[in-house]
Design a protein around this nucleic acid. Structure first.
Lengths: 233, 233
DNA sequence: CCATAGTGATTCGTATACGATTTCGTACTC
DNA sequence: GAGTACGAAATCGTATACGAATCACTATGG
């Protein structure tokens, strides 16, 4: 949201925001070819700013760029998924722990309301709404994080995962229910002023559990050793 | 090193590598103005690839770019330092824990040799060599990390800190001795196959301790709350 | 029928040119 | 003497144009 406002600055930034939005919301799905000239024509810009936007998206892992060949929206294979989730687990854990002391009663109430709505979505089976609310819930958790670097890493991870929409990873059966319960447990920890270590571990496990659920479903151990979640039990 | 080899690809990558190298090694010190036309002339390229290189360096936090004004090598103020160290603490902790099971006896031996050399440097007071060796030591720790994202974050942090050369943060008196001892302790943990959690915490504290030493020296608490190390005791 | 060399189309990579914005110095006015 | 308005210089931002690399297709020879 904030980014769209900033984007009005230069054409390269507009192009960046426009293409990024279309990747994240699924308009450009994985494998879609991003041709510089074509994008430039569609957006009404020249190729130079568009090229800059693409390179920036490449740095964030949203597109794959090949010299003299072109750019495609990068899908996410099981290995990539694993690494992304693992990294998210770590940075989200840290972000939550750092935010926790700054989260007030009002925030908690808001988060709890969102979480209850999520529980509702499960009954009516509304996965799209569920996903939106999930994002809102975590926004409350992270938005007070004082370290902008870590916050940025969290956002990047989310964007990376967002390109999964309409991919096979989206839902692991039964996982959503556990997720909502974990949210509530996390809120309790924050509310009661648990120490940073405890909160961090809980937040990590919340993410790791999703990864583990996926791995249990499709145990394609891509990398040797303990490639899974760092806090595997 | 590896990057320089890759850099031969396109001119924008060459420019990126060249400018980055000069920032990291201190040729371009913080505050130095990077004028596109000037750089282009020096490197023998046109402005377009140079511009792309600068934007990329901006994304990594090495330069600050202002629309219609220009780019300057970004210094690092106490707040920035704090956030960078905090983030490094987290990602290095994770990287070390993930690497640990893959570190063999030969690696340990190598790391230990480097560490003993570092101890030597302390006696002869050779801070430059000490810094180099410190980097080598950590390379051994991280190079087996199976998660490329996390490894990348570690490298970015190191690059960011590298631009500190000739800045006031460089050495905190007495800290270096502790650092060497912590290295040895870390190696022992890895050698004896300690669990991931223990290794991670130790690796984190190794970095946090440097931050804490700095904060004790210049207690400019820039952000509210527990802005310091996450694992503060 | 398959392997291979050649040719055209597609797309990226970068140089150059020009317009837009900011900055800084200077002269003018109060 | 201080403050302001104006203009020139510096710098970025982007459009356009052309060169270089790659790819897909076809024709040719075995």
């Amino acid at each position: 949201m904030t980014e769209t406002a900033i984007a009005a600055g230069s054409k390269s930034e507009q192009a960046y925001a426009a293409v990024k939005a279309k990747i994240v919301d699924g308009t450009f799905s994985p494998g879609y070819r991003l041709v510089l000239a074509g994008l430039a024509k569609d957006l009404g810009f020249s190729v130079v700013p568009v090229r800059e936007a693409i390179r920036r998206l490449e740095a964030e892992g949203l597109v794959k760029f090949e010299r003299n060949v072109g750019a495609t929206v990068s899908g996410i294979d099981p290995t990539e998924y694993l690494y992304t989730m693992q990294t998210l687990s770590i940075v989200e854990g840290a972000a939550t722990a750092l935010s926790a002391p700054l989260i007030g009663e009002a925030d908690i109430a808001r988060a709890r309301a969102v979480n209850e709505e999520m529980r509702d979505c499960l009954q009516h089976f509304d996965p799209i709404r569920f996903t939106r609310l999930n994002q809102d819930f975590h926004s409350v958790l992270f938005e007070h994080c004082p370290n902008p670097h870590i916050l940025d890493l969290v956002h990047r991870g989310w964007n990376r995962l967002a390109s999964l929409r309409s991919s096979t990873f989206r839902f692991v059966p039964g996982r959503a229910h556990d997720s909502v319960d974990e949210h509530e447990a996390l809120l309790k920890l924050i509310e009661t002023g648990a120490d940073a270590d405890t909160i961090e571990k809980a937040a990590r496990l919340h993410r790791s559990a999703t990864l583990d659920a996926y791995l249990a479903l499709a145990p394609a151990t891509p990398s040797p050793g303990n490639a899974g979640s760092l806090n595997a039990q």
